[in-house]
Amino acid sequence: MNGVFIDSNVFLEFLKGEEKAKVLLEKYLGPEGCINDIVFSEVLFVYIKAETGRESYELKGRPELMKSVELDHIFELLGRYRMLDVGEVVASEAGDLIRKYGLLPNDALIAATPAGTTA
């Protein structure tokens, strides 16, 4: 599969105003740049925590906090990149990576998602 997989950290650094992240995201804008649902979730989650100043356990069951965060620009940003599926093969490979390298589950799922190269 052709493309460059873009990790959550690149998007988060871009949102902080980091110029290197901006250049990277512009370079791989469109179908050449790839993410998966884990990256989508992580970017949203970290952004929501930063915007609310709350921890995850404080956000759970507090829909008013979730609704208070403007997310349209995050959805638009992430929507510029091709979404890759995390299926059985990726999950199986992620399990192998967890056992072999001691990765956390989301990191293993990201590492196991094929895109060509990783940014």
Results as ranks from 00 to 15, higher is better:
Ile6Gly: 09
Asp7Met: 09
Val10Tyr: 07
Phe11Ile: 13
Leu12Asn: 06
Phe14Ser: 03
Leu15Phe: 12
Gly17Ala: 10
Gly17Met: 08
Gly17Glu: 10
Glu18Ser: 08
Glu18Lys: 13
Glu19Met: 09
Lys20Asn: 09
Ala21Pro: 08
Ala21Met: 04
Lys22Val: 02
Lys22Met: 04
Lys22Cys: 03
Lys22Ile: 00
Val23Glu: 15
Leu24Val: 10
Leu24Thr: 12
Leu25Asp: 02
Glu26Asn: 10
Lys27Phe: 03
Tyr28Thr: 07
Leu29Thr: 05
Leu29Met: 09
Gly30Trp: 02
Gly30His: 05
Glu32Arg: 13
Gly33Trp: 11
Gly33Glu: 11
Gly33Tyr: 13
Cys34Val: 14
Cys34Ala: 14
Ile35Gln: 08
Ile35Asp: 07
Asn36His: 09
Ile38Glu: 03
Ile38Phe: 02
Ile38Pro: 01
Val39Cys: 09
Val39Pro: 12
Phe40Glu: 13
Leu44Phe: 15
Leu44Arg: 10
Phe45Gln: 06
Tyr47Ala: 09
Tyr47Glu: 09
Ile48Met: 03
Lys49Cys: 14
Glu51Gly: 02
Glu51Tyr: 05
Thr52Cys: 11
Gly53Ser: 07
Arg54His: 13
Glu55Cys: 01
Glu55Tyr: 04
Glu55Phe: 04
Ser56Thr: 10
Glu58Ser: 08
Leu59Ser: 06
Arg62Ser: 09
Arg62Gly: 00
Pro63Ile: 03
Glu64Gly: 03
Glu64Leu: 03
Met66Trp: 01
Lys67Asn: 10
Ser68Tyr: 01
Val69Tyr: 03
Glu70Lys: 15
Glu70Asp: 13
Leu71Ile: 14
His73Ile: 04
His73Met: 03
Ile74Arg: 07
Ile74Leu: 08
Phe75Thr: 04
Phe75Ala: 05
Leu77Lys: 05
Arg80Asn: 15
Arg80Pro: 02
Tyr81His: 14
Met83Pro: 14
Leu84Gly: 10
Asp85Ile: 06
Gly87Pro: 01
Val89His: 10
Val89Phe: 08
Val89Glu: 15
Ala91Thr: 13
Ala91Lys: 10
Ser92Asn: 11
Glu93Ile: 04
Gly95Glu: 01
Asp96Trp: 13
Leu97Glu: 05
Lys100Pro: 02
Lys100Glu: 15
Tyr101Ile: 02
Gly102Trp: 08
Gly102Phe: 09
Gly102Gln: 06
Gly102Thr: 03
Gly102Tyr: 07
Gly102Ile: 07
Gly102Cys: 08
Leu103Cys: 02
Leu103Tyr: 12
Leu104Asn: 10
Pro105Gln: 01
Asp107Lys: 02
Asp107Gly: 07
Ala108Gly: 00
Leu109Arg: 06
Ala111Lys: 09
Ala111Tyr: 01
Ala112Arg: 00
Ala112Cys: 00
Ala112Asn: 00
